[in-house]
Each structure stands twice: as C-alpha cells, then as structure tokens.
Amino acid sequence: MYSQNNNNVSPLEIYSWEMLQARLNKAMLSLQYGNKPSEPRNRKRDKQPADPRLQLCTNETVMLSVFRYLTKNERLVAMRVCKAWERMAVHPSLWKSVNASHQRIESAQLTGVVRRLPETLDLNWSKIEKEHLSWLLTRLPQLRELHLQGQALEVVGQLYTIHCPPLRLLDISFTADLTDANINKLFSPPNCIRTFQSVLTTKMVDLKELHLAGTLIGDDGVLSIAKILPSLTYLDVKCCLNVTDLSVVFLSHPQTPISSNLVNLDMRGCHQLTYASFDYFPSLPSLRKLALYPCWNLPLKLLQHWGRRYGFVVNSDKILEKFK
C-alpha cells in the first residue's frame, strides 16, 4: 500500500492531453528527420576571400571619381543601389551647385539641400517660406552664391541675421516692394551681434556681385550700397526706374571704397540717366564693362562717341567694353 505519510516520495506528475500530444509530435519529428548535429563552438568558419570588384564599388575615392561624370538624374538613380552609394552620391564635392528654381520647396527638398552642402544655391522664382529660408541659412555656412529672384520681401528679409553666411554673390532681382529703406536695413549690421565680436560689420562685407534689377531702389539705395559694400565689383541695377545721375555721382565719388573696385556696372533701362552722367564714369578707374543701352536719353551713337574718347568699344550686345 502506498503510504500518504511517506515524505520521501514525490507526488506523481499529471500531464494534460495537450502536453502529451506535444511530446508525441516532438518525438515523431525527431525519428522522421533526425536531429541536426550542432557545430562545435570553437570551430571557426572558413572566410571566403572578398571579391576585389566589390571592394572597388564601395571605395569612396574610386566611386566619387566615377560619380563626377554622372548627371543629376543618374546620381539620383545610383542612390537607390545601396546605402554606401546613397551616402557617396550626396557628397558635397559632387554638388557645388544646387538648382531648385521654379519649384515648391518642401521639407524633403530642404533636407536634401542641407545634406549636399552646396556653395551655390539657385532659388529663383521658387515657392519657399521665410521660415524655410531662415532654416537653410543657419545650416549652410559654406554657401557663397545665393539666387533669390522673384521672392517676396519677407523672404529676402531673412538675410538680415547673424546666421547669414558670408556671401560673394547675391541676386535679389525683381523683389516686390524692395525700396531704399529695405536696402539700408538689409546690408546693415544685424542687431543680435555676439559679445566677442569687436567690429560690428555686416555679414555682406565681402560681397562681390549684387543684382537688384527690376526693384524700386533709387539714389539713396545706391548710396547705401556704395558705403556699406566696399568689395563690390559687379553692380546690376537695370530697369530700376528711380535711379538717376546722382547714383553715378555716389558710385564714382573718391571717398567711397566702391569707386576703386567696381569693374562691371549694368544700368540698362534706367531711363532717368542723362548725358551728364558721362562726366563721372571716368572716375571709376577699374571699370571694364558699362551697360547703358537702352536708355531713353542715351542713344547708341552717343555711347559710341563717348566710348572712342575714353577707350571703350561697343560690343555685339551693345555694352561698352574697355580696350585690353
């Protein structure tokens, strides 16, 4: 008889029907297929030598030299091959210039531009919000050329910040409602100057080329440019109907630094210019190209006569060009 008081004997294990069926299935599978012998842990797997062609395809130096011969669309296709090619296809050395003109700029485009870190960014006539441009300027310190034709005044106003990169070229042509007061503020030193900066200068102090075609600036705006931008060599104010002979006086004045550095001057379509302005153009010693045609008060024959007197010739584009 089995004694209930015997503590040395453990109670019998009672299995349910599901547990018995699971054990039976496991045993049947083991008999049918057999157990796969496990490999020893200390055994090292034989490594096959890597294909040298595969190593070349993932070498950044080699692939960058190949990607330079691809077009923009071909690079976008190459980015879909693998993660290594996606990273190399957006290398900044391949994207010195990014053209996003006539497009609607969304978050995806902003991220793509920042990944490429271009030196030249073309946003002419694109639909971009002022917050987006401000976000871009703070993340593109290497940017040197910026094209913003046809943008709203509030978008162009985002350049008035300490985060604006030191541009060499700026094109804000055909900006609506851009007046002399806006020009003076845009190129003035920003208010939020850091404490360790000893000289309060504008972020545009090294600007070489400025395009203001089709805006509402006048003589006061040109005077501000002549005072604030001493390194300017190219000034484009064509179709600015408020520009008069007084602007030429400001640009050629010997006390303004721009007078000795200005090389190209485009004043086509400034119909308030008269023959009196010709007395001041010779005071620009570095001037090599002067565009004045068409202007209502300056016929082409008059330009040719003045050009022969001061060593200029009218080229095929009707631009006065200095003799070499």
Score class of each variant (00 low, 15 high):
residue 52 P to W: 06
residue 73 N to C: 10
residue 71 T to R: 08
residue 111 T to G: 07
residue 125 W to R: 09
residue 107 S to K: 13
residue 88 M to V: 08
residue 113 V to L: 12
residue 88 M to F: 10
residue 127 K to G: 03
residue 113 V to A: 06
residue 115 R to E: 12
residue 124 N to W: 00
residue 87 R to S: 14
residue 88 M to G: 03
residue 110 L to Y: 02
residue 66 V to N: 11
residue 88 M to L: 15
residue 89 A to K: 04
residue 72 K to F: 12
residue 87 R to F: 05
residue 77 V to R: 12
residue 66 V to D: 05
residue 129 E to S: 13
residue 98 V to A: 04
residue 99 N to Y: 05
residue 78 A to F: 15
residue 118 P to F: 02
residue 65 S to H: 15
residue 102 H to D: 09
residue 114 V to D: 06
residue 59 N to K: 03
residue 125 W to V: 09
residue 118 P to H: 07
residue 121 L to M: 13
residue 106 E to M: 04
residue 118 P to V: 11
residue 125 W to K: 08
residue 130 K to G: 01
residue 53 R to E: 04
residue 70 L to E: 05
residue 55 Q to G: 09
residue 90 V to K: 01
residue 92 P to R: 11
residue 91 H to C: 11
residue 100 A to P: 00
residue 118 P to A: 09
residue 130 K to A: 14
residue 110 L to G: 07
residue 122 D to H: 13
residue 83 K to F: 06
residue 126 S to Q: 12
residue 71 T to H: 02
residue 80 R to L: 14
residue 73 N to W: 03
residue 97 S to R: 07
residue 105 I to H: 05
residue 57 C to Y: 04
residue 106 E to D: 11
residue 50 A to G: 03
residue 93 S to F: 09
residue 88 M to D: 07
residue 130 K to H: 08
residue 123 L to S: 04
residue 125 W to D: 10
residue 122 D to V: 15
residue 77 V to D: 11
residue 83 K to P: 00
residue 80 R to N: 10
residue 130 K to V: 02
residue 100 A to W: 00
residue 111 T to I: 13
residue 116 R to V: 10
residue 51 D to Q: 07
residue 82 C to T: 11
residue 88 M to R: 01
residue 127 K to H: 14
residue 103 Q to S: 03
residue 94 L to V: 08
residue 92 P to Y: 07
residue 97 S to D: 03
residue 106 E to I: 07
residue 55 Q to R: 12
residue 61 T to S: 05
residue 79 M to P: 02
residue 117 L to P: 00
